[in-house]
Simulated assay, not measured.
Amino acid sequence: MTETHATTPPRGPVFPPGRYGRRREPRRRRPWLLALLLVPAFAVAATVSVRLYRQYGDPTYQAKVITYTQITDSQIVVDFRVTVPSGGAADCVLRARSRDGAEVGREQVRVTAAPGEKHPVVSHRLATTARPLIGEVVRCGPVR
C-alpha cells in the first residue's frame, strides 16, 4: 500500500488565468439602504397590529354569554355580560347558528354602561331566518 498525503484545496473557486472573463471585486455594502427599506415596513406592521388588536383583542371589551332562551323558528334571546371601561359603551356583534352550524341571524348591538358600571348585563332578542341552536357574542369593541 502506498502512502498519499492529503492536501488542502485553496479557498474559493480557482479558475485558470485568462478564462471566464475578468473577476470583479466584492461590492461595498450599504447598510443605510437596508434600514431605509425596513423602517417603513416596521411602521406599517405596527400600525396594522395595533388596529387588529383594538378590533379583535382589546381586553377592555370582553363579552360572556350568560344564557340563551326563548328559542323559536324565528328568534332567540341572548343574555350576555360585557366588560367595558367605567361608564363606557361597546358595539357587540351577536349571531345565531343552526344545528348544522350555518349562521341564521346576526346583529350589531350597542351596549351602554351606567356611570361607574363596568359590567352591564344585556338581554337582546335576535331575529333569525331558521330555528337556531345557539346564540353567541362574536366580538365586542369600542363604539365607532
Rank of each mutant, 00 (worst) to 15 (best):
R22K: 11
A35N: 09
P59K: 08
R106W: 02
R99N: 09
R51T: 13
Y20M: 10
L34W: 14
R24M: 04
A127G: 01
G105K: 02
A102T: 14
P10T: 11
V122C: 09
L52R: 06
R19Q: 15
R28Q: 15
R131N: 03
A96S: 10
H124C: 02
S74N: 14
V109R: 08
R22S: 12
A41W: 01
P142K: 14
P26H: 08
G21R: 11
K64S: 14
A90T: 08
E107S: 13
P85H: 09
L34T: 13
G88I: 05
V39R: 04
S86H: 04
K118W: 03
T4M: 14
E103G: 04
P85F: 09
A45I: 04
W32T: 10
G18K: 07
R97Q: 13
P115E: 11
S86K: 15
P26C: 06
T2C: 06
R28G: 12
R28W: 13
V14I: 15
P85N: 04
G141Q: 10
P31F: 09
A46S: 14
R95I: 00
R29Y: 03
S98P: 00
R30M: 03
A113H: 06
R11N: 12
L37P: 07
M1K: 04
P120K: 02
V44R: 03
T112G: 00
I66Q: 14
Y61I: 02
V39W: 09
P17Q: 06
G87D: 05
V48H: 07
A6P: 01
H124P: 01
V109C: 03
R28K: 15
S74G: 09
E25F: 00
V14Q: 15
L126D: 05
G116F: 12
A89D: 11
S123F: 01
Q55R: 15
H124Y: 15
G141F: 05
V82Q: 05
G12L: 08
A41Y: 00
E107N: 13
P17M: 01
M1W: 08
